[in-house]
Structures are given as C-alpha cells and as structure tokens.
Write a protein that binds this DNA or RNA. Sequence first.
DNA 1: TCCATTTGTCTATTTATCTAGACAACTCGA
DNA 2: TCGAGTTGTCTAGATAAATAGACAAATGGA
Lengths: 253, 253
Amino acid sequence: MDMLPQGGIDRGSGVALWRQIADRLRQAIVDGEFGEEGAMPGEMALSARFAVNRHTVRAALAGLVEEGLIETVQGRGTRVRSIKRYTFPISRRTRFSEGLAGQFRDRQVTVIEETTVPASERIAAELRLAPGHPLLRLVLVSRVDGLPLSNSTNYFDAKRLGQMGAQVRETGSITRAYAALGIADYVRRSTEITARLADERERALLELKPGAVVMEARAVNDTPDGVPLQFAITAFAADRVTLSLGAPLEEPA
Amino acid sequence: MDMLPQGGIDRGSGVALWRQIADRLRQAIVDGEFGEEGAMPGEMALSARFAVNRHTVRAALAGLVEEGLIETVQGRGTRVRSIKRYTFPISRRTRFSEGLAGQFRDRQVTVIEETTVPASERIAAELRLAPGHPLLRLVLVSRVDGLPLSNSTNYFDAKRLGQMGAQVRETGSITRAYAALGIADYVRRSTEITARLADERERALLELKPGAVVMEARAVNDTPDGVPLQFAITAFAADRVTLSLGAPLEEPA
DNA sequence: TCCATTTGTCTATTTATCTAGACAACTCGA
DNA sequence: TCGAGTTGTCTAGATAAATAGACAAATGGA
C-alpha cells in the first residue's frame, strides 16, 4: 500500500476525514494496490496509518461498502470486490464498440434524451453551420456488462441527420446509425480532454457518488473527405475508463 | 450560470456544503460562465439558488478568495479574477514548450528529485529492459508564467541516459537535454490518460487544494526508429490544462 | 446626498463529525 | 477447543459545520 503515506489527512478542507480516507482507499483499490486477493489492512492498522480514530476509519469503510467496492466480514477483515477497468483507444477511427472489443460481453447504448436545439456559436463553428441552425441533440449512456462507462451529448445537423435518434435506438450504435443513413465511414477530426468532478446528472446516469471524477472529451467527427458530422461531449467515469492513445493512432495507409 | 441548477447540494456525502458550493462555483468559473466581466451573483442570490444559509455561501466564497480565484468587495460584490487555461496538444511529436507555444511568456522546468531506482516489471517492459535494471528517475515540475501546470516522474535507462538530470537542469528542457546527449529526435509511442483526485505531493507541487482533480498521462517516448527512451507519468492540473488531440496528430510525411 | 444593494461581523443555537472507551460477536489457525 | 485478531455496536463528550438573526460598513447609481 505504497500510495498511502502515513497521516496526510487534511483538516479544515471541507472534506470530512472519513471521506478523504474513503477517497484514498478507493484510489488504492483502483490502482490495484491490494493485489489479486484484495485483502486490505484492518481497521486498527488503517486507524494508525491515517492517524485517526478507528470509528472514523469505520465510517470510510462503510462508504466504500455502500459503493459496492469492498465487503467486510466480522472477524475476518475487509476485502476488495472484483473491479473492472476498461481501456478505450482514441484515434482517428474511434468506435466505441470496436475500441472496447474483447473487454466485455454485453454492451448497451441508451438514448436518454432527444431534442432539437439551435446551434450555439461554438457548435456551429465546429460543424460549419450557421449559428441557430437546428441541431439534433442526443444524450446517450453507454454501458458494458451493465456498468455505465460514459454519458455523451451528441449534436447533429437536424436537417441532414435528423433520423440519428431513431437509428441509434434501433441499431444500438452510432456507427450503425450512420450506416443506415448512408454514411459508410467517419473519422475523428479532433478531441480535447479535460477532467473534473462529475455533476449531478452525470452522477445519476453513470451511477457515481458525489465527488467522483470524470474525464470530459470534446470531439468532432467528419466524413473522410472532411464534411462535419457530429460534435460530441462525452464524460467518462475516470475510475472505470482509461483513454489510450498509441499505435492505433496511425491511419491505415 | 446555466450549470448551476437550483439546489442539488448533497448532504451526508462527507463533503461540506460550503465545499461543494465552492467546487461548483470554481467549475463555473473555469467554464467561463461569468463572462468577460466576471461578475458573480451576490451572496443572497447564491444562498437562494443553492438553498443554503448565506453564511454557508460565505464560507464557500472565502475558500475561493483564499485560492485567489475571486475577489469580493463590500458593497460591490464578487468578481472572478482573470484565469488562464492552457491547451496542450498531444501527438507523436509532443514537446512541452512547443506544444504550449504562444500561450505563455515564461516557462520553467524544475528538477525536484533525482534518484536511481531498479526497474519495476511494468517500466522494464515499456523500456524493453530487464526488471531491476537501474533507471534514472527524475521528478519534474513545469510552470508557465509562474503557474505550475504539471508534475511528472520520468524514467530513463541510467546506463545510457544517466546524464539527463544534469542536462535538464542545465538546459531547462527534456528535448534539449536529449540533444545534448546526442539524441536529435524522439517520438511519442503511446499515451494513456485517466483522471483522479490529486494526491498530497501533487497538491504541494502544483499548488492545488485538497479535492483538486488531475489528469494523469502515462507515456512512452522512443527514438524515431523505435528504441525506447523514456517512461513518464505526468499529472496535469485539470483546472489549468486541456489535452488536445487533433490535426497535429498526423506525423509530417 | 440618499438609498438600495452588497459584503462584513457578531452572537447564538442546532446538527454533523470526530474522538474515546468498552464490550459483544465472529473468524480461523494452532 | 482456545485464543488472537478482527469487525460490530453502544454510550458519551468535544469539535466542526450549518443555520439563524441582527446590525455595521461600503459601493455606486439616481
């Protein structure tokens, strides 16, 4: 448990001690610090390590039990429940399902909201449309094996791609929805990544606790000859997803 | 202030109400919600909006004043201080200074630690060395215009690149340190990105408050003909940096 | 200058968190 | 079976956070 230094819990920060300990333990769990067995130090050991009362440690562990991350058994101790982290490659040819291929058995894309909105200056510029142009706005949640990984808000030219909502519902995939509308191929023009605390809606959709971190990716997809198709803002649950850039970056010759 | 819905502050989450409000306001500030003037709603309005007592709002604002993000003037109200966000492009040819070119006037790389460590299994594999091979480990902090943007831990083959520490200190740049050691060019093999709360050391080095979010990039650099040079783990302050993938991704022909 | 609006400061009470101590109940290896 | 080690539960007190109310002080527009 190298990442858990002696003490180091901040008082007066506005984050309860139990919460800070829970956050630290969660990070250690996500980082695989407790090995294959997942056996964690006992309450008294954690109490000594964090220099807090045992009850404070108990509160932290109770939080993690409630999150489903650990299980505690009286007399035996505390163990990490099996957790799964997914690596999502980002490239010019980013595809959700193909990107995660081999990492799951079942995948599901749910349309949460479908509305038509006027294009803001920013989105209009990205999609090379006039501000105010009607856009189809699709809010999606993507799950693998029942676990929500991302929540995205997607914008399409409503005049050209107004059927994307219906097609995503029918096919369960943006790639297949495009194909159904006659768009055989698309490529990622750009992606901007930042990170922050998840907001209320993201927490609800991704089943996250307050204080959870998301990586936000803002991306634009074009046809291979450069016609704008989609502007998307995607929040990935940072505890569950790693974004990977590497060898697949290079476009097939 | 669209991103600040009515109410929505969680009780019992282990994060104080004032802290949640401060986090929300900080995010709104970072997202540019308060416009060019930076004028924010008054305490009474925020109190109503978040459905908390005015003093709780005052505690939140005090936190942001202490961070230097805002200034409050009795009788006049609260304004955002000018903040700066940097966009850092990631490509095969990632270079810290060139990547941020045009976004700052002054840049500084500080060597925080220089040690020799045996290669772990993971790093040995990335650098194609034997586990236990001696590695030069350099901990760096990079600042622009005095603002710390990233904290990185870099690993080099100590036998081939043992002088990197001295050269980084002398030249203020990894690229120039490589050049001084006869390595004229290098490319990014892969990058993996995730995000989490900053740990204690990161907070100290990047001047962040408890609960701040960092984006962690794990990257490997090679020579153009594929000889491994460097394994680096970099924590970027998520409030200050956006990682950008896009047009510059394509390698010059 | 006046006054509406805003932040600043003080006192007081209630609620939440942290600490402390003690004992019960369970697990599992010797 | 015994006992060391572990988690579970209870009572109690101290400290921190949240709420409430009131009034002072400053700003800036009419």
